[in-house]
Design a protein around this nucleic acid. Structure first.
Lengths: 168, 168
DNA sequence: GCCATATAGTATGGCGCCTAATTATATGCT
DNA sequence: AGCATATAATTAGGCGCCATACTATATGGC
């Protein structure tokens, strides 16, 4: 069933203790393990290009924007703090994928732009990524995809996060 | 559908670009978002007890072992490196949940034991956690659970990680 | 015009995870 | 017995993420 080691250990122990609702526990760990494995594969795919998942998101947003974007807008769209964006931009700059340009009208502000190399890497990585994701779900029929989507949705509804985020 | 902000941004952009296999992309992001949200809820539940997810796993393993466990065995069972275990134990020790005791026979080795407080926290947290997970999947019927499990499995099979980990 | 307040980006320090290097101890071979 | 090698735990340094606190600049109200 391909659980991560830690979840395997927890599940075995839960079994030994005969905890109730073992089936839910198993499903939860299965979901988390799948996500971890996807992230790991993703990271392995991105690493050779000098990218992490976070940097990839910024790269994508910048490529979409075309005309350069301010760090605070990047933070908003990526759903991380401005401080995190600073760190990610440091990385992208080190890799020569972006440039920080001062805004002439607001001297506090920056405009982040992709370099030539950045644009090229973006193009290649997006193609690669698309193929990869397609492969991930390629063996599911249309009906199965609908089912999976619906089930994931149903579970999402039970999360504290979902409701609190809506009200915020 | 409750996607994390970053995935929302990526998905919208993918739509705009009319990338192929949008449905796969959506499912992928939905899975990752669910896992992220579960982790976030979990972290919020554990934080008041001075626990992180990693520390929780060690606490569980130690509680299961009863007689004290060596850090290297904890690392194996939790699926992290010994260095990481050192850090997690530092945290647990700071919180007064464990004690490091030198092994009398092998002076390199340690035996980690839960303190009284550690055992109490363990008991409470396990109960809380069980209820929480049960609630997460509580609104799925038995059939839906089977379906979800099967679908997640089917996706897992397409991961590079799965095959490579088997051979290692 | 001036001051309070908001905003932009960053520094700092924490967490969990990693790899690689370090230190102490144990063990096996000759 | 003595030395190479293995093993236990830790340290050091890196990454991505966070929250908090700081600095520089902009803006609105009086």
């Amino acid at each position: 069933m391909n659980l991560e080691q830690k979840y395997l250990a927890l599940l075995q122990e839960a079994q030994r203790r005969q905890l109730p609702d073992l089936e839910s526990i198993r499903l939860c760990f299965q979901t988390l393990s799948l996500a971890t494995a996807i992230d790991r594969d993703c990271a392995a795919l991105l690493a050779p290009h000098g990218l992490s998942e976070g940097r990839f998101v910024l790269l994508f947003l910048l490529d979409a924007a075309g005309e350069g974007l301010a760090p605070n807008r990047l933070a908003e769209q990526a759903g991380v703090t401005r401080a995190t964006v600073t760190g990610l931009l440091d990385g992208l700059e080190r890799e020569g994928l972006i440039e920080r340009q001062g805004d002439t009208r607001d001297r506090r502000a920056l405009r982040i732009q992709l370099t030539h190399k950045g644009k090229q890497v973006a193009k290649n990585v997006f193609r690669q990524h698309g193929r990869w994701i397609a492969g991930l779900f390629g063996n599911l029929s249309a009906a199965e995809r609908r089912q999976l989507g619906a089930l994931l949705d149903k579970v999402s509804g039970n999360l504290a996060t979902a409701s609190s985020r809506m009200s915020t």
